[in-house]
Amino acid sequence: MTAEEGRPELSIVIPCFNEAENVAAIVAAVTAEAVRHAASHEIILIDNGSTDGTRAIMRELCRVDARVRVIFNNRNYGQMRSPTYGLYQAEGRAVIGMCADFQDPPDMIGDFVAQWRGGAQVVLGQRRSERAALPLRAARHLGYAFLRRFGDYPVIPGATGFGLFDRAVIDTLAAWNEPEPFFRGMVVESGFRLALVPFDRPQRAAGESKNDFAALASFALSGLAGSAKSLLRLPLLLSGCTMALAFVLLVGGIAALALEGPVWALLGLALGAALFAVLLLFLGLIGEQVRMLAERSRGVPLVIEEERINFPPARRRPAARTLIQRP
């Protein structure tokens, strides 16, 4: 039997962090859809350091169904590294990545598989609407706007990473060895044949979202640093404007002192603070890229595994950065 013949047709990867209320239900729903639409399948749960009983439920799911496989990380590696690592560990001829909270509807699996069998190499769910708080929606819109304006390749609005990826896509992106993989951008950058499936994103089935404003901000900055190289050239274009404004501020400040006009002095200080904030933003992005370059040169793994369950012996994808923590 060749390696290709031994692969499941479909792998479904579900990252989890404190999803005790959802994980059993999502596995049941996904299993039902996979049995209906694929000749064979596996489900990979990758746990990112849960502390609420999620791991005990995962162990029981593995005991009941050998097609359910689990990777336990030794700590929380964030919402970019852990899900992407899980995708790289899948063996299916097609790989689906989705959330555990039912905001990525399992009943779309059939649509994804149909598009893939029709020739698409990447099939992404595209969110038409979402029931979320206004600040969260505003933060996402702002992040997409920045990426569309400054990104090195087109960003698909409403595409969160929920989708199906052909074996060739997974193998190609795993070989890139990105230390902070902005996966939804990488699949567009790679240029594989892409199809979109619009959907209305529901609310979480249970539990609370782990994507607070700080997590979204960190995600957006990593995405900008990894996929918006042209943004770092913008300071060169702004340098002339900055020098002109600095001259105006200097003249205005001298005039304000001479005329004893505090309003003009305060305005000058405000403009100076705004310029300083812009400079700090660019320095921060440069720092992010320097950090990513340093991690790439060090060969830092995406995650360190604590344990894996129900995987065939010695199965570990060589293209993905991997470490196993020994007891």
Rank of each mutant, 00 (worst) to 15 (best):
R291E: 04
A20P: 00
N22I: 07
V35I: 10
L281P: 07
A270V: 10
P135N: 00
R93I: 10
A56M: 05
L134N: 05
E180A: 14
D104P: 02
G119E: 11
V23N: 03
A90R: 11
V13K: 02
A94S: 07
G158L: 05
S222L: 03
A255F: 14
V300M: 13
L249H: 12
G299P: 13
A24E: 03
A217N: 10
F182E: 00
F219W: 07
Q121V: 07
L236M: 13
V27F: 05
N74L: 11
D65F: 01
L224Y: 00
I46Q: 04
G272F: 15
F146G: 02
F146E: 06
G240N: 06
I156M: 15
I43N: 06
E130D: 14
R36G: 06
L266Q: 13
V64S: 09
P8D: 03
E9K: 14
I26G: 03
R67A: 13
L249R: 15
P106I: 03
V68P: 01
A270E: 08
A100K: 02
E307M: 15
V35L: 14
V169P: 01
R184I: 01
M58Q: 07
R201C: 09
E9M: 12
V300H: 08
A195V: 11
G253M: 11
F276E: 09
L10P: 01
V263A: 14
K229S: 13
E4Y: 11
D65I: 03
E33F: 06
A159K: 04
F150C: 04
L259T: 15
I109T: 04
S82V: 05
I309S: 00
L134G: 05
G49M: 00
D200C: 08
E307T: 12
P154W: 10
V13T: 07
A265L: 14
A215V: 10
F219S: 04
L257Y: 08
I254G: 12
L142Q: 15
I286L: 12
D111L: 11
P135F: 02
L279I: 09
E288P: 01
V197Y: 05
G261T: 12
G253V: 09
N177T: 10
